[in-house]
Amino acid sequence: MKTDIARIPPPSDDKRWRIIDTTMRRYGYDSHCLIETLHSVQEAFGSLDDQAMHYISATLGVPLSQIYGVATFYHLFTLKPREAHHTCVICVGTSCHIKGGATILSAIEKTFRVKAGQTTADGTLYLQTARCLGSCGLAPVVVLNEETLSKANQNNVIQRIQEIIRHDA
């Protein structure tokens, strides 16, 4: 239990800071819980901004550069919020790769003029790749928002994305 560090108030009145504080308290404000805390921030706020990292640094007594180092080491953490209406995740794991995942990816990149890891210019679609979604038996797999398309091909994925976008309009 850390007792030598004076507790500092959260950056704002936002109720979500309580969740972050609860996580840190559960581990006795020990520096070891840095990754758990970052998970908690990422889940509550969608990304890790400077303000959050300053708060965690002061509360857990972990140097700023160390937090930045950890936050950028793990791919799950993001420093900038992603703001897109829809997310399309293409699995590019081995099974999906063998069964044409890469073809689907390049077809989507071409059709919607977006690169993996980026959002379309109009902000409607965020395209992402995943290392393996673990549904290899149903390869190739694409996840559109919450919906999983298994044994997918470029035509049905593109069609489905267009449907979803049209539905918004």
Partner: peptide
């Protein structure tokens, strides 16, 4: 339970330990 955060190398024993300790893997 401790969660990884998207780093394959953390399957390596010493990297996994570093990660549980809250550090870069």
């Amino acid at each position: 339970v401790r969660l990884g955060a998207g780093a394959f190398v953390c399957g390596e024993e010493t990297a996994l330990i570093a990660s549980i300790e809250g550090r870069r893997g």
